[in-house]
Design a binder for these strands. Structure first.
Lengths: 203, 203
DNA sequence: ATGCTTGTTCGGGTTCAATTCGGGAAAAAT
DNA sequence: ATTTTTCCCGAATTGAACCCGAACAAGCAT
């Protein structure tokens, strides 16, 4: 970022640019969003973009950071309630909240998540992974019997990555082969069966 | 594609362009690959690109199609051997082959898979999904006891999408939190436990 | 072989978007 | 009130995608 916004006005400008980025991206996709579109939507001149961002790419970067931060902001407050529920219900709840989050503001985030790779989502995903790992840890502590499960890091990795991707892909698919509820139910059952089988094998 | 190549020479040109596309994409990423780079690597003039492709985007599209076709070409011949193995071993084998496939030619495909979304990978993924569903079907037929499993379409969907994404993401990650073998083992165990638990619940 | 038609290649020229730059307006500091 | 800092802008620059017409090669009939 070439310059740090110091005045209130400037902070509002930066914010408007990021918001505009999401809107333009949702509407045109990442390749077809131009700096002029972003500037017009934000209601600023093109040159202003470059006061606070080195280039268009960096706008996308910051958008990705914002998105991840917002996602974490969604998850954190849910943790206390989730850890008290049975595992299948917890998975279902989490995913339903995630869907609502993606679909708010006319699916703005969902449409952008679709192009997550382009946005360099991966590089910023680590905090999200951490937040979800934290959720898993908390859950395990509230359910001592589940501490017998082996390979928890590996399974978290698979479920977090696979789960996020499956959900995003499903929501983007105009004609998905299964319903969203089936997907959520499937993920919940997958987790449930795995833990139960581990309980059996390690008793 | 503006024109269909009729002569052998022209077909070679088209092929060279697609190959060059993979090389350039792997080296520079999708945003930074220029038509000149592709043309230079392919050893043709820039104008030649536009004889067979409407625009740069379409080159990427065709690359995605090629990639999916090659992946299917990898999987199809493996099916007969895979269906004879125990489920965990089958998963492991499949994923190892997939890894080798992605990493051949200096990880060309892997580097491109990373940007799969940009390439419009999703739109072309359906045949791949079909091929993998075919594998699942064949497997089920060779192991009649597994026909008792419920929700097979849903579980296929989750495992195929989640599995592919987890593997690609892992291979792209310069510092993955778990090893590839752990990931493969985790996926195999996940499938194994799920089927066993279903066996128990439906007997 | 020779001319004719069609298919193919090429690279300079045009267009359009990203980025730069320098000056003028607004806010803050003195 | 004046100086200094911060902020905003849009015309000019730059470079890449894309178009186009000339030059070249292949097939094919005579």
């Amino acid at each position: 970022m070439a310059r740090v916004p110091r005045q209130k006005r400037a902070k509002a400008t930066v914010n408007a640019i990021i918001e505009a980025g999401f809107i333009a991206m949702a509407e045109h996709g990442p390749a077809a969003t131009t700096t002029r579109q972003i500037a017009d939507i934000a209601g600023v001149g093109v040159g202003s973009l470059y006061e606070y961002f080195d280039n268009k790419e960096q706008i996308f970067q910051v958008m990705a950071e914002r998105f991840v931060a917002d996602t974490i902001g969604l998850i954190q407050p849910l943790i206390p309630a989730l850890v008290r529920k049975p595992i299948k219900e917890a998975v279902r709840d989490l995913l339903q909240h995630f869907r609502n989050f993606l679909q708010q503001d006319d699916e703005r985030y969902l449409k952008c998540a679709r192009h997550a790779m382009t946005l360099g989502f991966e590089e910023h995903m680590e905090p999200l992974q951490k937040a979800l790992s934290e959720l898993v840890t908390q859950y395990l502590m509230h359910h001592p019997e589940t501490l017998r499960i082996r390979n928890i890091p590996t399974m978290s990795y698979i479920l977090i990555n696979g789960g996020i991707f499956s959900v995003v892909r499903h929501l983007c698919d105009p004609a998905p082969p299964i319903s969203f509820d089936e997907l959520v139910d499937g993920l919940a059952t997958m987790v449930g069966h795995y833990t139960e089988q581990e309980m059996v094998l390690t008793q």
